[in-house]
Design a protein around this nucleic acid. Structure first.
Ligand SMILES: [Zn+2]
Ligand SMILES: [Zn+2]
Ligand SMILES: [Zn+2]
Ligand SMILES: [Zn+2]
Ligand SMILES: [Zn+2]
Ligand SMILES: [Zn+2]
Length: 331
DNA sequence: GAGTTTGAAACT
DNA sequence: CAGTTTCAAACTC
């Protein structure tokens, strides 16, 4: 098994993963040994509010290649076409490192007992650019690790704006972006609000709130560059299911994301009025929904080191006590 | 444009 | 729930 190889190669106190970087197939190519990482240089696990895991990236392709070549032949072979990431943790090092990184979840605290732990990520995750191209008999890694300029003329990442419709009859996205028919809104025939931000979704089929079009209650339009888009008028049934699913998770999924309530931003979240939860942006970048909406953070926010507080106190600060930290919305 | 950072959304 | 992973945008260089 892979774990046995990892144990043999890296010893008892090691941690790492094979295959594509399980965080978005990023720059880490094939194999990572956490215990070898420089702990002082913050090249560490992604840690954003405990929502991140994963490992830092290599400094260069050469580093990836060297790392890769240092693997055993069996490991190389097993991952010549990496689609699944195997994650391992041996010994007690992981838990100690977890403390170093501020992680304390079961994944890490149990590492001491588990002895070996593995996780599979994504059953068929392939890099987005892997489609089409020249004959891809070459493995992803091989192509990725090719140093220097690509010999052949294959261009990475040719993201065809939109492949031709599979079926002649299907309308796909020939129609401009519009409000979902399910919303039952009266479509002003002549009046069209200018089509806006196209999305670039590739894995959500534009049927999750990840997709801004879907989240806005709109279908994707011709300007969208999404892949495998199902948020098109000819998939009304799927859209309907997706909307129901999203609403099931959060009844306010499609209520305006940003509203002003007495000068206070409210965002949707599980039926609870709440603000942002930023940790590292200082609420001064577009990552922050409050900042993006051009509204100051409020007591609903649980942001850290917020620099987006209301400047001029129109009103005295909220009374801290006697109010539940979360207020359910009364429809 | 490629690579990184980020926090919401989704999942378990 | 809390912890973890997925996701696409925002951002950086
Ligand atoms: Zn989309
Ligand atoms: Zn779209
Ligand atoms: Zn789409
Ligand atoms: Zn914020
Ligand atoms: Zn905020
Ligand atoms: Zn804030």
């Amino acid at each position: 098994m892979l774990y046995g190889e990892a144990l043999a190669e890296f010893g008892e106190n090691s941690r790492g993963s094979w295959g594509l970087n399980h965080v978005d197939e990023g720059t880490s190519g094939c194999l990572k040994v956490t215990s070898l990482m420089d702990k002082n240089s913050k090249r560490e696990r992604r840690s954003s509010g405990g929502r991140r895991s994963g490992f830092g990236s290599y400094a260069s392709e050469q580093a990836i290649l060297e790392d890769w070549m240092s693997c055993g032949p069996a490991a190389r072979e097993a991952h010549s076409t990496p689609r699944i990431v195997h994650h391992w943790e041996f010994g007690t090092l992981s838990s100690e490192e977890s403390r170093f990184h501020g992680f304390s979840g079961p994944l890490h605290s149990k590492a001491t007992e588990l002895k070996v732990r593995s996780t599979r990520y994504g059953s068929s995750s392939m890099p987005r650019s892997s489609t089409l191209g020249s004959g891809s008999s070459k493995s992803f890694l091989a192509s990725k690790l090719t140093l220097g300029k690509p010999a052949n003329g294959s261009r990475n990442k040719i993201r065809s704006a939109h492949p031709a419709p599979k079926f002649p009859g299907s309308r796909e996205k020939s129609l401009p972006q519009s409000t979902s028919t399910l919303a039952g809104l009266e479509g002003e025939p002549g009046v069209r609000v200018k089509e806006l931000k196209p999305c670039n979704c590739s894995k959500s089929k534009c049927l999750k709130l990840y997709c801004e079009c879907f989240a806005a209650g709109k279908t994707c339009g011709p300007q969208c560059k999404c892949l495998n888009c199902t948020n098109t008028p000819d998939h009304a049934d799927e859209i309907d299911r997706a909307r129901k699913s999203a609403l099931d998770r959060n009844p306010h999924a499609f209520t305006p994301k940003i509203e002003m309530d007495g000068g206070v931003l409210v965002t949707r979240s599980k039926g609870v009025i709440r603000g942002c939860r930023c940790r590292k942006s200082g609420c001064l970048k577009g990552y922050c929904e409050c900042y993006q909406a051009k509204v100051p953070c409020s007591h609903f926010c649980v942001c850290m080191e917020c620099q987006n507080k209301a400047a001029g106190p129109i009103r005295p600060p909220k009374p801290p006590q006697s109010e539940p930290s979360t207020r359910t919305i009364v429809t």
